[in-house]
Amino acid sequence: MTEEQLDKYRLEGTKVRVVRDALEMNDVVGFVVAWDDESVLIRRPNRRVVKLKRDYVMVEASAPRPTLEL
């Protein structure tokens, strides 16, 4: 995920989905709040903030969920 994409999601208030593994229940859905070189902060609907690695797959929440190959 590039700096420009993260900034676009933050400024537009786009809800994103962070896919961490093959199980959909482990996805984090929310809004991009901030980021640095290694991590990104996502605000979930319950207003809690989650710090995640930028290595995870991140897509718009309205887009289909990508499948991860193990």
Rank of each mutant, 00 (worst) to 15 (best):
T2K: 08
V40E: 06
A22V: 09
E24W: 02
S39W: 07
K8I: 09
V16H: 03
V49K: 14
D37K: 14
Y56S: 06
M1K: 12
V32R: 09
A22K: 09
A61R: 06
M1H: 11
M58F: 11
V29Q: 06
K53D: 15
L6F: 15
L41S: 14
D7Y: 07
V57W: 03
E4V: 14
D37S: 12
V19L: 01
L52K: 09
R54G: 11
E69G: 11
P66K: 03
E4P: 02
R10Y: 06
P66L: 02
E4D: 15
R43F: 01
V28K: 11
S62W: 04
K8M: 12
V19H: 00
V19A: 01
V16I: 15
R20K: 15
Y9W: 15
L41P: 00
V50N: 07
V19Q: 04
L68M: 13
T67R: 15
F31H: 13
G30N: 08
E24R: 07
V29D: 05
R43K: 14
R48P: 00
R43P: 00
L6I: 11
V32C: 11
L23C: 00
L70W: 09
D36C: 04
R17L: 05
R47Q: 10
V57K: 10
V18S: 08
G30C: 06
N26K: 12
V16S: 02
Y56M: 06
R17A: 08
T14N: 00
M25L: 11
R54D: 10
A34L: 10
T2F: 01
Y56E: 08
K51P: 00
R47S: 04
L70H: 10
V16R: 02
R65I: 01
V50Q: 11
R10V: 03
L11F: 03
V19F: 00
V18D: 06
E4I: 14
S62L: 04
A34Q: 15
K8N: 13
P66S: 07
V49G: 01
R54F: 07
F31N: 08
R44N: 10
A63E: 14
A61K: 05
G30K: 08
D55R: 12
I42G: 08
E3H: 10
T14A: 06
E38Y: 13
E60P: 02
E60Q: 12
I42L: 06
D7T: 13
D27K: 10
K15A: 11
R10L: 09
L52W: 07
T14K: 05
A61C: 04
D7I: 05
V33N: 03
I42H: 03
R48D: 11
E12K: 13
E69Q: 11
A34I: 04
M1Y: 11
V18K: 04
L11A: 08
